[in-house]
C-alpha cells in the first residue's frame, strides 16, 4: 500500500516537472518571442508533454490500484449504482368498443330520426298555425 502511495506521489511530481518543462523555454527566455521555435524549445516542450502525460497515467494507475486494494480489504465500500427507475408506461386508454359507440350514437340520434320521419309524414297533412314542415322550410330557402 505504502509503495503504491509513494509511486503516486512520484508520478505527481513527474507531472509537475513535465509542466515546468513545457513552459521553461518561455519562462527562462531561451525562446525568442518572435519567430519559430528553436530546437531547444521544441525538444523541451515535447519532452515535457510526454512526461506530463506519463505522470497523469502513473497517478491514475497508482490511485486506482490503491482504491482496489482498499476495497479488497473491506476498508472502502463501493456504492452500487442504482439503476434509474424506468418511467412507467402511460396507462393505455381503455379500448373503446366500436359496437358500443355506434350503439350510443344510434341511441342519441334515434329521437332526431324519429322526429324527422314524423315531420316527413306530415308533409301532406294540413298544418295548424301556419307551421311548415322542417323539410319544406329547408327546401324553400
Amino acid at each position: 500500500m505504502i509503495r503504491k502511495f509513494v509511486g503516486a506521489v512520484a508520478a505527481a511530481l513527474a507531472l509537475m516537472a513535465g509542466l515546468w518543462l513545457m513552459i521553461a523555454p518561455f519562462a527562462l527566455g531561451t525562446q525568442p518571442e518572435s519567430g519559430d521555435w528553436i530546437g531547444a524549445t521544441r525538444s523541451e516542450f515535447f519532452t515535457g508533454l510526454g512526461v506530463a502525460v506519463l505522470g497523469v497515467v502513473g497517478v491514475a494507475a497508482f490511485v486506482a490500484s490503491i482504491h482496489e486494494e482498499l476495497v479488497a480489504r473491506g476498508l472502502v465500500t463501493v456504492r452500487e449504482r442504482r439503476p434509474r427507475p424506468e418511467p412507467r408506461p402511460a396507462p393505455e386508454p381503455a379500448p373503446v368498443a366500436p359496437q358500443s359507440s355506434s350503439a350510443e350514437l344510434a341511441t342519441l340520434l334515434a329521437p332526431l330520426v324519429e322526429a324527422l320521419r314524423e315531420d316527413l309524414n306530415r308533409t301532406g297533412e294540413h298544418r295548424q298555425n301556419g307551421t311548415t314542415t322542417l323539410v319544406g322550410a329547408e327546401d324553400d330557402r
Partner: peptide
C-alpha cells in the same frame, strides 16, 4: 495490473529523464 501500469509509467519517466540529460548535446543546442 493497475500498479503495473503505474510502474511502467515510472520506468518510462526514468528513460525520459535520461533523454533530457543527453538532449542538449544530442539535439545540438
Amino acid at each position: 495490473m493497475k500498479a503495473k501500469m503505474g510502474l511502467t509509467a515510472l520506468f518510462l519517466i526514468f528513460l525520459v529523464g535520461l533523454w533530457l540529460v543527453v538532449a542538449p548535446f544530442a539535439v545540438g543546442y
